[in-house]
Design a protein around this nucleic acid. Structure first.
Lengths: 206, 206
DNA sequence: AATAGCGTTGACCGATACGGTTAACGGAGG
DNA sequence: CCTCCGTTAACCGTATCGGTCAACGCTATT
C-alpha cells in the first residue's frame, strides 16, 4: 500500500474509505469491482490502483482501518472506564453514532467482512479477528452487583437483550439509507430509559 | 414464468428457490448471476431459463413466493389468533424457525429485496410491499391490557425490544452458518421466560 | 423398430465488465 | 523551458454476463 495515501487531505481519504466500505458491504468480495469503488470515491480507477496495488490489499487495508477506527472511537468515548452498565452502554452507543456519521457503511462492512468466505481473503480476515471480539462484555457482566437490579433477574439474558435491542435499533436506521443521527440518538435514549425503568431495583420501589 | 415449474417434485422446487434466495441475498440484483443460481440448485443454466424466462421474472417470483410462504406459515402457526402476547410471540417464533429450516436464506433475502434499489426491479418490489408490512403489531399493541404488566411500563418500547431481541437471536444463529434449530428453540424459550419474569406484573409479586 | 414428445443439457453468441498496466496529460516550481 | 508528480484516458487479455439453440437421451405410443 502506497504511503502517499496518508498524505492525502482528510476529506479525500475519507471519501475513498467510505467508497470501499460501501461497495464491499453490498456485494461479495469477488463481485465488488475496483472501478465502482473509484467512481464512488470520485477518482479514477488508475489512481485507486496507484494507492493500493491490488484489490486484496485495499480490502485488507479497509478491514484493518475499520478495526482500528472502531477501537479508537470506543476507547476515546470512555465507555470502557464507566462502571455503571447503562452509562457504559450510553457512551458506547454515542461512540457508534459518531462513527456511523463519519463512515456510514462501516458497520455493514464489518459484518460482511466477518462472514466473508472467499478463499483469497478469508484466512487473512480470520487471523486478525481478535481485535474485534469484545472481551469487555464478559468482564462487565461479572462485575455487576445483583442488588442493583430487580430480584431474581437473569443478568446474562438482560445483557444479551440490551445488546440485541441496541443493535436492532441501529440496523433499523442503517438499512433505511441516509441516517438521521439525531432521531437515532433520541430513539436510543428512550431505549436506555426503558431499560432503567424495567431492570433497575430502585426504580421499582417508587 | 413457466407453469411446469409447479409440477416439479417438491425437492427440486425447493432446491431452486433456496438457490435463488441464497445468491440474491448475498449480492446486488445486478451482480447475482443466473449461472450461479443454477449451479447452486444443481441444474443447468438452460433449464433455469426454461422455467423462468429471464432474471427479473425469477427475482420477482422469489419475492412473491417469499411473501406468500411467510404469510402462510405465520397464519398456520396460530400466532395471530393467540390473545396472550407472549404466546403469540412464541408461536410466531416457532413458525419462523420452521421456515428457516426449510428455506435457510429466506430471511436474508427478504431484507435485501426490501432495500434493493436497482431501477429494474425496485419499483415492482415497492408495489407489492404491502403483503410484508406487519399490520398485526399495531393491533396487538392496542389490545394489550396495561394491568397485566408492571406499572408504568412503556408498552411500545417493550414490544420493539422484544422484536429486536428475537430478531437478533435469530440472526446470531443464521450468520453462524448451519443452524441448530434445537439449540435455537431452547435459547428462545429462555428469552420468553426472561420477558415474562421482567415485564409481567403477577410475576413481580411472588 | 420407428416415431413423437419432453425434460434436460453443452455449446455457443455478442456484449460487457473485470483487474491491472501504460503512456501521456497538465499544472506547479525552478 | 524543463522537471516533477498527481492524475487520468485508453488500452489489454481474459472472464463473465443474460439469453438462445440445437441436440441428446429417455419414455410412451404406434
Amino acid at each position: 500500500m502506497n504511503p502517499k495515501f496518508y498524505d492525502l487531505p482528510q476529506e479525500r481519504k475519507q471519501a475513498i474509505l467510505n467508497a470501499g466500505f460501501h461497495v464491499f458491504s453490498r456485494n461479495t468480495y469477488k463481485k465488488s469491482p475496483m472501478s465502482e469503488i473509484a467512481e464512488a470515491a470520485g477518482i479514477s480507477k488508475s489512481l485507486l490502483f496507484h494507492y493500493f496495488h491490488n484489490k486484496k490489499e485495499l480490502y485488507l487495508f479497509l478491514w484493518d482501518t475499520c478495526a482500528k477506527i472502531t477501537v479508537e472511537e470506543m476507547t476515546r468515548s470512555g465507555a470502557y472506564e464507566q462502571n455503571d452498565l447503562f452509562g457504559s452502554m450510553d457512551y458506547g452507543m454515542q461512540a457508534k453514532l459518531r462513527l456511523m456519521k463519519k463512515y456510514p457503511d462501516i458497520g455493514l462492512f464489518a459484518v460482511r467482512a466477518f462472514y466473508e468466505k472467499d478463499p483469497e481473503i478469508s484466512a487473512d480476515i480470520q487471523k486478525s479477528m481478535g481485535k474485534y471480539l469484545d472481551a469487555h462484555a464478559a468482564k462487565k457482566l461479572g462485575k455487576l452487583n445483583p442488588d442493583d437490579f430487580i430480584p431474581g433477574i437473569d443478568l446474562y439474558m438482560m445483557y444479551r437483550e440490551m445488546y440485541w435491542a441496541s443493535e436492532g435499533c441501529l440496523w433499523e436506521y442503517i438499512q433505511r439509507g441516509a441516517l438521521d443521527t439525531d432521531a437515532m440518538e433520541k430513539d436510543f435514549r428512550r431505549l436506555l430509559d426503558f431499560w432503567k425503568s424495567v431492570y433497575l431495583r430502585n426504580n421499582r420501589e417508587k
